[in-house]
């Protein structure tokens, strides 16, 4: 069973985000493997241990060397990194078109990704590009007899969905407990191939992947205002709450 895992690096979840000159200031911000992608890597490795085959890490944009090394050290077999200056101004559409093409360069039975990959759009778009079924936000996955059976989070509960493979599955927290790379894994990772491809190598032109969405501006979420505690007896407090919700918050 050959599995492609879509992977990216993201800002350390503890990083302090700053905006400078109309863009997010990336200087000094630690990058980590996208946590949801880590679940995808782990799931791929577990499936490989059970069914054999190869796990290929696929990434678009050159910002991922550390995450890629980590995935290889965890046990993935090889990696494909699409690097091209034309990707710089890309959006989710760009990334998805590029990733889908890159996936198509290898034999695959399954595509795994983190569910929040690029505004939670990228993996779904990849499925669309490849004409594959997809299941999103998965917390349990079984692959058997050409079918993928997945439990996914939905509002207030979960549902079980079955699709034929190949399919695109996106991982949610809870799917598994990602392993740590072992010393041996770290050593072996150095010798594993990372194939670098340009847009041209994938038969794509810059026009074909041009962004459909343009970012107008960035702003930080406004600081959370302090909460308000309404004192007094319950009936009066409730009335006061209703008044504030109506008149101040415009919520009712």
């Amino acid at each position: 069973m050959n599995i492609a895992v879509l992977l990216k690096q993201t800002f350390d979840t503890e990083a302090k985000i700053e905006i400078a000159g109309g863009a997010i200031n990336k200087k000094g911000v630690g990058l980590i493997i996208n946590p949801y992608d880590e679940y995808a890597v782990e799931e791929a490795l577990k499936l490989k241990e059970k069914n054999g085959g190869e796990v290929t890490i696929i990434s678009a944009g050159a910002d991922t060397p550390d995450a890629m090394r980590q995935a290889l050290a965890m046990g993935a077999d090889k990696a494909i990194s699409v690097e091209d200056p034309a990707l710089a101004g890309g959006d989710e559409y760009t990334t998805a078109v590029v990733l889908a093409k890159a996936v198509s360069t290898i034999p695959y039975d399954l595509v795994l990704a983190g569910w929040r990959e690029g505004s939670a759009q990228v993996a779904v778009r990849v499925a669309e590009e490849l004409g594959l079924p997809h299941i999103n936000v998965v917390t349990k996955l079984d692959i058997d007899g050409g079918k993928a059976t997945a439990t996914r989070d939905i509002e207030g509960g979960n549902e079980i969905v079955e699709v034929p493979v190949p399919a695109v599955i996106t991982a949610q927290k809870g799917l598994n407990e990602p392993r740590y790379p072992s010393m041996k894994g770290i050593m072996q990772a150095k010798k594993k191939p990372i194939q670098k491809l340009s847009l041209g190598d994938l038969g794509l032109s810059a026009d074909q992947v041009a962004a459909k969405v343009k970012v107008q501006s960035y702003f930080l979420p406004s600081a959370k205002a302090a909460g308000k505690i309404i004192g007094g007896e319950a009936p009066q407090a409730a009335a006061e709450l209703a008044r504030l919700l109506r008149e101040e918050a415009n919520a009712i």
């Binding site: 090394r69 980590q70 050290a73 740590y180 790379p181 770290i186 050593m187 990772a189």
Partner: peptide, 15 residues
Amino acid sequence: TEELQDIRKVARDFA
């Protein structure tokens, strides 16, 4: 080296 940085990361994450 990258290798030693990766080792530090694993040890730190584990701890």
